[in-house]
Design a protein around this nucleic acid. Sequence first.
DNA 1: GATTAGCACTCGTTTATAGGGAGTGCTAAA
DNA 2: TTTAGCACTCCCTATAAACGAGTGCTAATC
Lengths: 342, 342
Amino acid sequence: MLTERQLRILQVIVDDFIQTAQPIGSRAISNKQDVAYSAATIRNDMAELEQLGLIEKTHTSSGRIPSEKGYRFYVDHLLTPFHLSRQDTSAIKQTFSTNIRQMEEVVQQSAALLSELTNYTSIILGPELLETKLKHIQILTLSDFSAVMILVTDTGHVEHKSFRIPDGMDHAEMEKVVNILNDRLAGVPLMMVPGRLKSEVQELLKQHTVHFDTMFAYLRSFMETEQPLKLYFGGKTNILMQPDFQDLNKLRSLYTMIEEEGETIARLLKGEQNGLHVSIGTENKLSAMQDCSFVTASYTADGIHMGTVALLGPTRMEYSRVMSLMHVLTNKLTSAYQDWQK
Amino acid sequence: MLTERQLRILQVIVDDFIQTAQPIGSRAISNKQDVAYSAATIRNDMAELEQLGLIEKTHTSSGRIPSEKGYRFYVDHLLTPFHLSRQDTSAIKQTFSTNIRQMEEVVQQSAALLSELTNYTSIILGPELLETKLKHIQILTLSDFSAVMILVTDTGHVEHKSFRIPDGMDHAEMEKVVNILNDRLAGVPLMMVPGRLKSEVQELLKQHTVHFDTMFAYLRSFMETEQPLKLYFGGKTNILMQPDFQDLNKLRSLYTMIEEEGETIARLLKGEQNGLHVSIGTENKLSAMQDCSFVTASYTADGIHMGTVALLGPTRMEYSRVMSLMHVLTNKLTSAYQDWQK
DNA sequence: GATTAGCACTCGTTTATAGGGAGTGCTAAA
DNA sequence: TTTAGCACTCCCTATAAACGAGTGCTAATC
């Protein structure tokens, strides 16, 4: 069991390392204003903390740095409630002050804001489309040969895809198809659209158009593929600017992950529980993230999981401030979403 | 004036450095299969080439590497016509073999292809919207308070934006607005839309809707802002994997440029002349690019500049192959575009 | 006169060695 | 239980020496 003093020392070590990114020795700790013990005393406690695996040496005679386990302990037990600075709160307020015209915009701006305030990389999984319903389908002919299919959801999200008009299909026939689609699919939750397409629309289409085969293939490819998990990044470069990443290869693999593992990250965020969650170092499954900490926070609407805000920074992360910021931000996103729905 | 042999030596130096990224000495050159001169002879010529600023030493007694001027000379005078390998041509053929449904897709795939074949970073400025015409405008009400405006061009491009319905505006009135817009703006080239909006639509709207002020403001913001220069990247991480970039800070500034200078790059590409163009090292205006070479090639349709394909790599770039590839690619893009238009 | 062989010289790279300093672990005193 | 004192460890830097790749120059060769 850790003594009060040992807890305090661990806290100082983590706090200091978060700030300076340098190992800290017993003497330096002892010299701090609000520490009253001698270097020797602190050394003894440090030895014990090290034994417990909460702090580490970089070499035999160096100062100590927090271990992964140390960060974990810090996050779980030593986090002092942080109240945000005036600048932080006013920055957030300002971002959410403009009239909401489109949810995507708000999310994008939130990502930018979060990364700007923290200097880490923010990733937000956009409002999930699970609950959104199909509002309207439209086909617009562009030329004799090509047309574009447009799909609008009740959240104002628009998807579109061009396609080649099957030879010999005329305008009236196209209209018939669109009418069937709207009749059968409007108001249906997006996630159920592919199912409905098969169960209800397929047969109807077969009866009403001679170009059933091609059209149905188009529709399937359109509606089945186009349900991407939208990720919004903020400050992609931020994390690479951190002094923690001096190693060329780590830098490269981190960058590669951000650029190319969007899918994986999206799935990761999608699986996130409600509430704030911190993954430290090797607690992360993605190997490129194993020198980072990853903080996630979901936002909800009417208790339903809508999306997830995440922040990628070095393990040496300003946990306290970050978690407060994200707490506020997710609340703001929730209420923004509710406002938007009226 | 350079002798035949000096030209040959310069060529060998550049070719070798492009392959190995290592300085090369007189002995190594002399040992090459197709070089018949002794190391001493080559040394003499190298001294002269250095005097002319075409090659450099990294230190007093090192092998030589091409200077920027050397690359320039190489590109201008020593480039051997390159015929693409079977793999290259078939890869290109395959990318363009699928039926074209949407121009944007083709461009995106071209970018991916180019970066994959070269291991550099490709950037393509999408087909310019100058020539595209507005096909259709639609407003769809999502709820009593919100609606989404959708704009479709004759190329199948779709833009959309949500907005808040002015208090008290009913469906009939909205429809009137849309009718006016379609009546006056359909078929108008995108670049002229903002002008027409002012010259023709403004007055008409004023007469037909009591909510003129808000609606007109929406329209303006929508149509004036939404003419972005679309950039498609391929292999964003590729260039950072090049052994040429070992310096952490260079790496970071390069990355930052790619991530955040999209606007600048877009403008750069937009201003590009027709034909292939190579910028080497400090010939580039962007400081982050000054250790890179930047090859651009425009693609046209009916003689009109449509967009630009660009490739960002180290100055030590496989110029010959790259330029052949880009030549073929722009031709393919041009014909793809013409096919698409029918 | 052009080409080549030979050789001294330069400079980066590696290895070995020594001194300084920050920080620890342990022991003994307070 | 806390603290002062001290030997010890290991990183870091500086210095020196050996090595080697490559050059520049001179003199010999074709």
